[in-house]
């Protein structure tokens, strides 16, 4: 791993994430027959928020201010483990588990900050987030187990990118499907959560950040788009073999953009599920991953 590649990965991680919500928004606008916000809308939003002051609830303590900061820090370190078009420079055997638990830390910090406001809305969001993410966790670990069997590596670099369609195609379909569901749930997307809804009672992720504003909200927005990028990168590398060099970046960027568009298509073509249905869909993801493990074990 040379310095230039690590630099390219780092630059992409820092600059690209806010583009993905833009692509999703555009896709939804096309489906809805609207013009929609520009691709770069999220960049504008984040920059505008960074320039603002802040309003805090009287109930809150330092926990409320620490939440977005700690969450973004955890996501950034998780990002350092994820391979993009180039392999991650800080990879080691077993980093996949650190990745999963760093996402857990980010979620933990967000939930703590949400509960700090003492609002029922935010408590409800944190409760749902905790419930659904704990069901998504086994799906991720089983998918990792299956990928380990298919590729023989325990690092994200080798697990995502080493599997071949000709050898383990059926397993890849199951893992890809399962992880796509986990991606939608982890990134608070339809059918699990509706980021565009305007009623607090029906939100999960958005409701946890109701009382945040200014730079804190900028951290949160950037963090959630970063998380989407990380998951997309993993899924793209899983499903598409990347050629080396500049072509690799082109294929990777195309793949990530296509995935964002796919999320947009899902969002435009179906409604959010009833909250009681969500665990069932997550169990479906767990089952898909479990079947992939069985295929890999045979």
């Amino acid at each position: 791993m040379n310095v230039l590649a690590a630099f390219e990965n780092g630059a992409v991680l820092l600059l690209l994430p806010p583009l993905l919500p833009g692509i999703i928004g555009k896709t939804k606008a096309v489906f809805g027959g609207r013009k929609g916000p520009p691709f770069l809308q999220s960049y504008h939003d984040i920059l505008k928020l960074v320039g603002k002051g802040a309003v805090y609830s009287r109930t809150t303590t330092a926990m409320f201010r620490l939440g977005p900061v700690l969450s973004l820090a955890a996501l950034m370190v998780a990002g350092a483990l994820v391979p993009l078009a180039h392999d991650s420079p800080t990879s080691f055997p077993g980093d996949a588990l650190l990745f999963a638990y760093l996402l857990g830390l980010a979620r933990f910090a967000t939930m703590a900050a949400a509960l700090d406001a003492g609002s029922s809305f935010e408590g409800m969001g944190a409760s749902r987030e905790a419930a659904f993410s704990s069901l998504a966790e086994p799906a991720l670990v089983l998918a990792l187990a299956a990928l380990f069997r298919a590729t023989g590596g325990l690092s994200l670099n080798r697990m995502f990118g080493g599997a071949q369609w000709s050898v383990s195609g059926a397993g890849l379909v199951l893992i890809g499907g399962g992880l796509f569901l986990v991606l939608l749930s982890e990134n608070s997307r339809i059918p699990f959560d509706d980021p565009a809804t305007h009623l607090e009672l029906t939100m999960i992720h958005e409701v946890m950040t109701l009382d945040h504003g200014g730079p804190d909200l900028a951290f949160i927005l950037y963090g959630s788009s970063l998380k989407l990028l990380l998951w997309s990168s993993l899924l793209v590398r899983l499903l598409v073999p990347l050629p080396p060099g500049a072509l690799g970046w082109a294929v990777w960027t195309g793949g990530v953009a296509a995935l964002a568009a796919a999320v947009g298509v899902v969002e435009s073509s179906m409604a959010r599920l009833k909250m009681t249905r969500v665990p069932q869909v997550l169990v479906l993801a767990v089952c898909a991953a479990a079947f992939a493990v069985m295929l890999a074990l045979k």
Partner: peptide, 9 residues
């Protein structure tokens, strides 16, 4: 910048 405290939403 202005940092205010208000009741929770």
């Amino acid at each position: 910048r202005s940092v205010e405290t208000q009741p929770t939403w």
